[in-house]
Amino acid sequence: MENGKTPALVCRQVTKQYGEAVALNDFNFTVHEGRIVGLLGPFGCGKSTLLKMAAGIERLGSGELLVLGETPSHALMSSVAYMPDRPNIPDFGSVGHLIRYYKDFFPDFRPSVIESILPELGITAKDKIRFLSPTVLRKLQLSLTMSRAAKLYLLDEPPAFTMDGSAEFVSRVIMANCPESSTVIVASSQVADVEYMLDDFFFITYGGRILLSGSARVAREGSGRSLAELAREVY
C-alpha cells in the first residue's frame, strides 16, 4: 500500500507459459492508484497476457496477481474496464443497441460521455454497426470503454491505428474521461503514440522482463529525449 491506498494492480512472481513459450517469467510489477501507466514493449512480450489475466479472461500460471486488492473475478469487473487489442463489438444492429448493452451491464456507464463523442466519430445512435469502418469501430470501442467511470482501465493497444489523427483522439478521449482517482494501464508497442499521456512507464521485453521504468516526465527531463527515443536506445 502507498499512503494507505490499495495499488490498482500488483504482480508478484507472475509466470505464464503457453506450452514451451514463456509469456511472462517471474514478473513483478505494481501500479499505483490514480496514474496513467504505459506498459510498453514489442508484440509478444506479454503485455496482452498480463491485461487478460487482470481482466479475468486468462488464467494465471503461477504467482500472485491482485487487481484493486483482490484476485480477478467477474464481480470485480464492475470496477474494471477492459478493452482488448482486437475489435470485440457484437453486431447488435445499431450503435444505439450497443450503448444500451453497456448501460444494462455496466453500472458505472455514463451515457452522456459516449453521446458527446459520437458526433466526433461522425456517427449517430441509429447507424448500423456492420457498416462502420474498422477504424471507427476501434474508436467506438475505446469510447465505450472510457464512457465507464471505472476504477481501473485496462487498454490493450488503443492507438493501433496511426492514420487520421487517431493517436491524438485516443489520448484526448482517455485523458478527458478518466476520473481523477482512476488508474489507466495502456499496453502499447507504439511508444510515440501514447507517451505524452503517461505519468509512468514500463519498458518490458520478451518474457515480461522490465528493462526500464519510472516517471515519464522525469525520464524525459533527465535524458533530454522523448520516451520513443529512449525506447530505441533500450531495445
Partner: peptide, 8 residues
C-alpha cells in the same frame, strides 16, 4: 467473448 466474459 472477451466482452461477454468481462462483464460483471
Amino acid at each position: 467473448g472477451q466482452l461477454a466474459f468481462t462483464r460483471p
